Simulated scan of single mutants.
Amino acid sequence: MAPKIPAGFRAAAVLIKPVLLATTRREWSGMENFPDDRGFIAVSNHMTYADPFTLAHFLYDNGYAPHFMAKASLFDVPVVGRGLRGLDQVPVHRGSAKARDAVDAAVELLARGDSIAVFPEGTLTRDPDLWPMLARTGAARMALEHDVPVIPIAQWGAQQLLAPYSKKVDLFPRKTVKVVAGPPVDLEEFRGRPLDIEVLRSATDRIMANLTSMLEDIRGEQAPSQPWDMRREGGGR
């Protein structure tokens, strides 16, 4: 069973959940895929700044405190930073000596049976049709180093509440938000191998392929054959 949700999360839900209930119609499925005996990494696609709220709602209502790995700069924002720390959110210091601290904090949460929510792309997708793009390898590394399952969670509809890179919300009429949790990603062939860039890239691509396939089912459309790669000139595929 998941650890009991702390009081701080329940207090935050009193404020946030009524807004989500009033502005979204929820089509949720796949909850039977959550492990009931250990912590797990929940990975999701990232289209809009509303995604963390809809993903948190999904996790919370299924008995899991939504712990996110979030960029460290958010923790410096007055009030917001205090709230994030109070809810055991994990600051990520990219490209600094403190980068490892995020993994250590996340592993501590996983060890006690909690979930960690990660958007592997690291930022909102740049794909013009909002398909998942090439992802960072951090979630795969954490899963393989510490032998924890990765649960892919595909969502679609949150972008209607808040368009990508927009600050203009559109709460009414209510938007349908579809969220689906899939079975744990099969990473067995990568476990026990040296975690070099080839292994991490392959494991990450496996995770994102699962997530993209689930999103194809939700949308009833086919994703591009190659994910958007921001490293390429012009950000093209």
Score class of each variant (00 low, 15 high):
Thr125Cys: 00
Arg141Gln: 09
Thr123Gly: 06
Met214Glu: 05
Val199Met: 00
Ile116Arg: 08
Asp129Tyr: 00
His46Gly: 01
Ala158Trp: 00
Val199Cys: 08
Phe9Ala: 10
Ala105Ile: 03
Val150Lys: 01
Leu21Ser: 01
Trp156Gly: 05
Asp37Ser: 15
Glu121His: 02
Trp131Glu: 04
Glu189Ser: 09
Asp127Met: 04
Ala72Arg: 10
Asp36Ile: 07
Asp36Thr: 13
Gly30Val: 03
His93Met: 05
Asp61Ile: 00
Pro149Asn: 09
Asp51Ala: 02
His146Asp: 06
Ile5Gln: 04
Met230Arg: 08
Pro224Ser: 10
Ile207Val: 14
Pro120Arg: 06
Arg206Gln: 02
His67Leu: 03
Val43Arg: 12
Phe34Ala: 09
Gln226Tyr: 13
Asp101Glu: 14
Ala50Val: 01
Ser213Trp: 08
Ala70Phe: 05
Lys4Pro: 11
Asp88Ser: 06
Ala223Leu: 07
Gly192Ala: 08
Pro66Gly: 11
Gly235Leu: 05
Lys178Gln: 09
Glu188Ser: 14
Gly192Thr: 00
Ser44Lys: 03
Val43Asp: 11
Phe40Ser: 14
Leu74Tyr: 00
Val103Thr: 12
Val169Tyr: 07
Gly86Thr: 12
Val90Met: 10
Arg112Thr: 14
Asp229Thr: 13
Val148Ala: 13
Ala209Gln: 09
Pro66His: 02
Asp114Gly: 01
Ile116Tyr: 03
Gln155Ser: 00
Val107His: 07
Val185Gln: 03
Asp36Gly: 07
Ser115Trp: 01
Leu162Ala: 09
Leu200Pro: 00
Pro52Tyr: 11
Lys178Thr: 15
Ser225His: 01
Asp186Ala: 12
Ala70Glu: 04
Leu187Tyr: 08
Leu195Trp: 11
Leu21Cys: 05
Met230Pro: 12
Gly63Ala: 04
Ile5Cys: 07
Asp147Pro: 06
Val92Asn: 01
Thr137Arg: 14
Trp228Gln: 14
Ala209Thr: 15
Ala135Gly: 04
Ala163Pro: 09
His146Val: 00
Leu161Ala: 08
Leu195Tyr: 07
Gly236Phe: 15
Met230Thr: 15
Arg191Tyr: 08
Val92Phe: 02
Thr212Gln: 08
Leu200Ile: 06
Thr125Lys: 01
Lys4Asn: 09
Ile197Trp: 07
Arg100Cys: 05
Val118Ile: 14
Asp170Arg: 14
Ala181Asn: 08
Met214Leu: 02
Val14Tyr: 01
Pro6Phe: 06
Arg237Tyr: 15
Ser29Asp: 13
Lys178Met: 02
Thr176Ile: 11
